[in-house]
Computed example of a mutant assay.
Amino acid sequence: MTVRDVRDKLGAKVLAGENHLDEEVRSACGSDMMSDVLAFSKDHSVLLTGLCNPQVIRTAEMLDIVCIVFVRGKKPDESMLLMAEERGIIILSTGHRMFSACGLLYEAGLHGGAI
């Protein structure tokens, strides 16, 4: 699956990284707790979160997360978008709640795998 597919499945808006939508993603993780995300250490993944602060970008960078999807219509500020652009991280925003967004991606074949 590509980030473009994720965008389409979630009806998401691209906020950063428009030129990288063909990046492949292999798994997904949904969490508002970055400590849980750190335990999930798969590369080429999508992070779904409602937490909207710079720590999310830093966590994604450490784990080689390709794309962050902010759920519930959350939108990061300009400094976060610039930080993501500099690090090559794609930022999407969707109106779906976390549970629904994860379910839609799972149903489309994007799984998280066991820990």
Rank of each mutant, 00 (worst) to 15 (best):
M1P: 12
M1V: 13
R4P: 02
V6G: 06
V6E: 09
R7Y: 00
R7E: 13
D8F: 07
D8V: 14
K9P: 00
G11I: 11
G11C: 09
A12L: 11
A12V: 10
K13R: 15
V14D: 04
A16Y: 00
G17A: 07
G17E: 02
E18H: 07
E18Q: 14
H20Q: 14
E23I: 06
E23N: 13
E24H: 07
E24C: 07
V25G: 05
V25L: 09
R26N: 10
R26E: 13
R26C: 08
R26K: 15
C29S: 08
G30R: 03
G30A: 15
S31C: 06
M34Q: 02
S35Y: 06
D36S: 03
V37L: 06
L38G: 04
A39R: 05
A39S: 12
S41Q: 06
S41W: 01
K42N: 08
H44M: 12
V46I: 15
L47R: 07
L47Y: 01
L47C: 08
L48H: 04
L48R: 04
L48Y: 04
L48G: 02
G50Y: 03
G50Q: 08
L51T: 13
L51P: 03
C52L: 08
C52R: 02
N53E: 11
P54N: 12
Q55K: 12
V56N: 03
V56A: 10
V56F: 01
V56G: 04
I57P: 04
R58K: 14
R58E: 11
T59P: 06
E61K: 14
E61W: 09
E61V: 11
M62E: 08
M62S: 11
L63R: 03
I65A: 00
V66L: 05
V66Y: 04
C67T: 14
C67Q: 02
C67D: 02
I68P: 04
V69R: 01
V69I: 09
F70D: 01
V71P: 01
G73V: 13
K74F: 07
K74M: 14
K74W: 00
K74N: 09
K74Y: 01
K75G: 00
K75N: 00
K75H: 09
D77Y: 08
D77E: 14
D77V: 10
E78H: 09
E78R: 13
M83Y: 08
E85K: 03
E85R: 03
E86S: 14
R87P: 01
G88I: 06
I89P: 00
I90T: 12
I90F: 04
I90H: 00
I91T: 03
L92I: 11
L92P: 04
T94W: 04
T94F: 07
H96G: 01
H96L: 13
H96N: 10
H96I: 01
H96R: 10
H96V: 02
M98N: 06
F99D: 13
S100V: 15
A101D: 05
A101S: 08
A101R: 03
C102Q: 05
G103E: 03
G103W: 02
G103F: 01
L105A: 06
E107K: 15
G109T: 12
G109H: 11
G109Y: 08
L110V: 10
H111E: 13
G112N: 07
G113T: 10
I115F: 09
